[in-house]
Design a binder for these strands. Structure first.
Lengths: 167, 167
DNA sequence: GTCAGTTGCTTCGAATTCGAAGCACACGCC
DNA sequence: GGCGTGTGCTTCGAATTCGAAGCAACTGAC
């Protein structure tokens, strides 16, 4: 049996399962609150947050999609919903006619400000209340490394397509 | 500002975001491989894994749904698919006429055995290759605590319903 | 220039997901 | 027993999700 496919030991399995379980439970709790508090889905919230944190509050569609780890077509759909509600705007990029620049509006920022306290409350209750002091830095450090490692792989937008050479 | 809604500090935010980002990226990578390797979705894989690990390879629908953190109706749908493919069986519980007992079949166990090596390879590459020795126990320990904390909250199946008192 | 291949986004169709509503059984309390 | 409430699962309808295919603009090689 190659070391690549050797079964994970008990510690590894436990860590892997705990990670997936925790994230799923947290996501559901957060989802529910966002829905009740500001009629936002988790993805919509993440989109607004990413935009809020970006310089000028604007990003290209593809970069946004890679950022929130979402399919491009899915992002088009969500962006459409958010635009209808006046929380973001879409406009063509000046330098590349194909690109679309997404930007948060004032209403978008207001909505974030409105739902953020409740969001934080949920995260605190679910996640941080279970952590000992010091665990936070630890968890953040380790997971940060993992994220950086994962992000070195090419993002979803860089998947090859167009195999039209065989008609 | 109450301490409940005080903004999360930088360490906390970093840890929270890293957690969600890592789990999403990992889930997508795993999903893709399971689909290619055994035509299974992530949920279907988890269902089969839970059943494989359960005594006698059987569980009640509700317990299974709570275990994999999934809606009941969603589980009914997925169970239907898995049953069609002969990977599980559904049968009424002997002691409670309402309950349905789900059980893995031999084919189900075979399929798990077939996709597990590839699954492990992905998890190892994405997650464990980025961890220093010792980080695994650490991560598992902390996340295990968090999971136990989250699991003390009532599961999805225990949500109140039936508000028929106001016709 | 121009032509083939690439990249950015949207449209499209199919599959999945969820909560609410529905159905049937179980369990109490009288 | 009989009735009201609770529980276990499925059905139903609506919303979301994804990849493939499509369209338009860009890029590089020649």
């Amino acid at each position: 049996m190659s070391p690549e496919t050797a079964p994970l030991d008990a510690e590894q399995l436990a860590a892997y399962f705990a990670l997936m379980e925790v994230s799923t439970l947290l996501q559901h709790a957060v989802d529910e609150h966002l829905r009740a508090d500001g009629d936002l889905s988790n993805v919509q919230f993440q989109i607004l947050m990413r935009l809020s944190g970006a310089p000028e509050g604007r990003l290209r569609m593809t970069d946004l999609a890679d950022g929130v780890v979402y399919s491009r077509s899915g992002l088009t759909y969500q962006a459409g919903l958010l635009e209808q509600r006046g929380l973001i705007t879409r406009s063509p990029a000046p330098d590349d006619e194909r690109s679309v620049i997404v930007a948060v509006t004032g209403a978008g920022r207001d909505l974030i400000a409105q739902v953020l306290p409740g969001h934080i409350r949920v995260v605190r209750r679910m996640l941080f209340n279970a952590l000992q002091p010091g665990d936070v830095e630890l968890l953040g450090g380790v997971l940060g490394q993992v994220r950086d490692h994962m992000r070195t792989a090419p993002p979803r937008s860089a998947r090859p397509r167009t195999r039209r050479t065989k008609p």
